[in-house]
Design a protein around this nucleic acid. Sequence first.
DNA 1: CATCGATAACTTACGGCGTAAGCATACAGT
DNA 2: ACTGTATGCTTACGCCGTAAGTTATCGATG
Lengths: 228, 228
Amino acid sequence: MAPPRDALSHDRVLQAALALADAHGLAALSMRRLGAELGVEAMSLYRHVSSKEALLDAMVDAIVCGWIDPSADAPKDWRERLGAIMHRAHAAMLARPWSVELITVRPRVGDGRLRYAETVTTALLDAGFSPQLAHHGLHIVDGTIMGFTAQQARRPTAVALGDRVQSLYEGSLVDEYPGISRTIREHHDHDEEYALMVDLVIDGLARLRDGEPPRRTGLGADYALAIS
Amino acid sequence: MAPPRDALSHDRVLQAALALADAHGLAALSMRRLGAELGVEAMSLYRHVSSKEALLDAMVDAIVCGWIDPSADAPKDWRERLGAIMHRAHAAMLARPWSVELITVRPRVGDGRLRYAETVTTALLDAGFSPQLAHHGLHIVDGTIMGFTAQQARRPTAVALGDRVQSLYEGSLVDEYPGISRTIREHHDHDEEYALMVDLVIDGLARLRDGEPPRRTGLGADYALAIS
DNA sequence: CATCGATAACTTACGGCGTAAGCATACAGT
DNA sequence: ACTGTATGCTTACGCCGTAAGTTATCGATG
């Protein structure tokens, strides 16, 4: 006969969870509602998912996995390889604003995250980075993707949040915040800005590899050893 | 007589909330428990805080406010000014790991966030950045602080999460993840790495100001206009 | 064909959550 | 002394995640 019934499965639950979050936001993702979406009671989900936490972790991993372009791990220039993954990640996260919250916070490492890390690390090693510097590079790329995207994903809604920002636009807070008042009206395109940041970071990494460390501020820990 | 009773107040609630999160984590911060901590029923808090959301926003703002050094807005070198705020922010967030989740996600802009933005923006404008570039610079600094710190704050717990990462350390996944296997054992100091990132970013900004844009990858949007 | 074991889904229940609505108390200003 | 107002308390509602126990379905076996 057919498979048991409608065959609930880990993957079906996962996909439904992604769809639900896409449609109604992360806050709307409760086990009860997810069950309803699948025509099933909440508790039935626990047959396929050990806890909600585990489900969220699986969602994160599925998304991160999408950062890697499966078609082309081609031997392009390392800058292009890094840039490509950073732009894919950015696009993927902005397409699912709710994912930012999940990804920036969850420590769990799954296959998706590992494959992503492997891709970045390999690109750097292939480009002649030392293991030490490749390690730093991964974290730098990681932080750039998430921080920058988080900050952009957060911004849109800020427009609607009222008097303070509104006043800034109207210029009525010039005395209190002269700097922001001057810059707040600047043209602002997320993708442009991100492209700029990406190139800035990649360029900085290249310089590190070539032994041209950035000019030092006297602040923070000494990283002399890190780039020797 | 004495003030009404023990004089609950917005500030007392806020401080208690910060203390509670510090002591037991963000998940433990419920209105009921917060009330208990203050010797009061949950609902009494709503006299001073309009909702839990508002309270969380206030917590964020209080923390961000601490990123600015109140003593010295001195006319130091702009690199030092920027570096100082970035390191203060980093330290403040790592001291309160739970704050990362809040700050990276909440769009609300309060006075603290505005004062922080003003400080960064002013430093850039004073250094001769165009308003356009100062605007980008603020976002770049913002994203760097949050992304990098988020990524570091998330890492510690990752150690305890089991077989996958463990296996990597033991080298039993060399075939599947050769790159990571080579780099994962590298020495790793959060502060060093962050100092490196900070200098890299500041250096990149300086270069932009001086009209030496980074080498371009052909990816993402065109930012020619942004740095003209 | 009758029976059984396993599997998948359902039911019930518990303790906790944020907060709306209404009530009691105690003070300050007249 | 009286009254308005601020402050905190009580109750209640509808959500949440999930532990524990119950039922229905199905393929394999005698």
